[in-house]
Design a protein around this nucleic acid. Sequence first.
RNA 1: GGCCCGGUAGCUCAGAGGAUAGAGCAGCUGCCUUCUAAGCAGUUGGUCGUGGGUUCGAUUCCCGCCCGGGCUGCCA
Length: 593
Amino acid sequence: MSYRCVAGLEDQLRREFAGYPAEGVLVAEPCPAEMKGDITVNCFRIGRFCGNPMAAATRAAEFLKEHPDVEAVEVIKAFVNVTLKPGALHRDSVAEVETLLASAKLPENRRKRILVEYSAPNTNKPQHLGHVRNNTLGMSLSSLLKRVGHDVIEINLVNDRGIHICKSMIAYQRNGNGETPESTGIKGDHLVGKFYVEFNKMLSAELDALRAAKPDLAGKKDDELFLETELGRATQQMLQDWEAGKPEVRELWTMMNGWVFDGFAKTYERMGIRFEHTYLESNTYLLGKDIIADGLAKGVFRKREDGATLCDLGKLGEKVVLRSDGTSVYITQDIGTTLKKYQDYQPESMIWVVGDEQNLHFQMLFAIMKKLGYAWADDLFHLSYGMVNLPSGKMKSREGTVVDADDLFDEMARLAAEACRERDTELTETELAERGEIIGLGALKFMLLKFNPKTTMLFDPAASLKFEGDTGPYVQYVAARIHSIRRKAAERGATSGNADWTLLGHPAEKVLAVTAAEYPGVLQLAAERRDASGVVEYLLKLAKAFNGFYRECPVLAAEKSELVTARLALSEAVGRIIADGLQTLTIRVPEAM
RNA sequence: GGCCCGGUAGCUCAGAGGAUAGAGCAGCUGCCUUCUAAGCAGUUGGUCGUGGGUUCGAUUCCCGCCCGGGCUGCCA
């Protein structure tokens, strides 16, 4: 979607200047509010193709002045500010909104099959705000990539085995008294998490006692003393029993993991997440060893004197890929799992949504995959995101300072439902609950997506529970307002058919249309950067432009019926874009607020 | 020590070489018999960490330094 007069200008410049690129370089930008004009053509960008920026601007202004779509042109430095005739402006922006929306799709030859892995929880405790950020980033990125035409496969890789799982199991064995989610009414993941916390308490107590009894150990760290404790040894033994397939351990593990999976399913459902496939680490943790043997034969890896197998990664350093006893390390199974994912789905690109503390790990993983010679290893991407901190500092599971995902959802939904109740006393409890869910969860996701993924963000619960200002509900509110206008228009028999767009020459109408026209470009740029935060910023801008229009230009009370029709058409077009944008971010759109 | 990320208004954050650096919150002023006030209009608030360099032009790119965070295991 582009403005005809700008495309025409580029064609002209191409004829006049031999060096002018075949692919368009001029993008019409919205003209700043304080300047006269609808769109701006920035000729600094094309200066080098046309002599210099000023010459380009002069030539552009000459051409645009004569163009039938153009009402006025003003040149300031190398900026050419163009005032368009309303009919032309709307024709090139919102008049055919379905065409505009469709133009966000990439051409077939640029679409890819992309595997996105995210969430990757452990099954020893419920999910917290950090997971919510991960889940939100992963699902929105997947949705965004699909929106521009890619074939996206969303997968999860659950860490369902290991020493941390055994910790919850040991505590349950000792203190569980046969409790179940059914008998206690506690959501399965929370019940298991309770025993994980209990384990850590018991361990702390034993460590304290140990240090008191043996002063020579007092200076050692908790990790170093783990196997000095009875609890630690029991946990270690349980892990070995699990690996050996000891029936009673496997049985307990299956039961407790089942509880956790039931709990996670509810959390995912509430967020609107559906994975195409969930890999279990208990099935994949042995993968990779055979590849190491191959790599060793090919000379990609080498043996160190002490027997460990390692990979020399130049600037990144050396990475051990097999211990001297021949067992796997973390990266070994990641190598194997990466290959397995490729074999299962043949993606052209793979994305991992994982916290930034694993930046080095992924650099090494990708470097190793390349050294192993896989052609597809050039398109592996770590979507690295920063931690979520609280005003009180970092979240720490052991210190009980985490913000629990389910509790947070409940609180957001409850407050949103309260606000709905104040506005409309007629609503039933069911309706309130539904709206609270849409608005509360929408506000949370929107807030998490507003930040650039890599920034370490601060989550202020008090501020986040407000629904005013640059928030999801602000955008949802515009959707609700538009819906309300449409409903009332329908009641009065007004329609948006055969709109005469030439009537929409009010500055607020033109700004709204110009802003709307930016949407496809915003989606494509966001997808290219693999960062949905641009879409969030854009929706706020569009919603703001609509609110300006809403104030300045009454729709249903316009002076004449033709103007009602045209403004209704503009409102509906904007409503379509807002809904499309929110859905792309996996945020639901309320009909009323 | 080395590598990576960050430092922009009181606070939280946008700004991928371009116009006089933006938004929200907080503060202050107004606006609900008018399509939904979760809204709108206005206003206060800045040596863009710092010192150099490249450029017609630098918050943006390069180098040094300061401050904060992460990583730097035969942990995951």
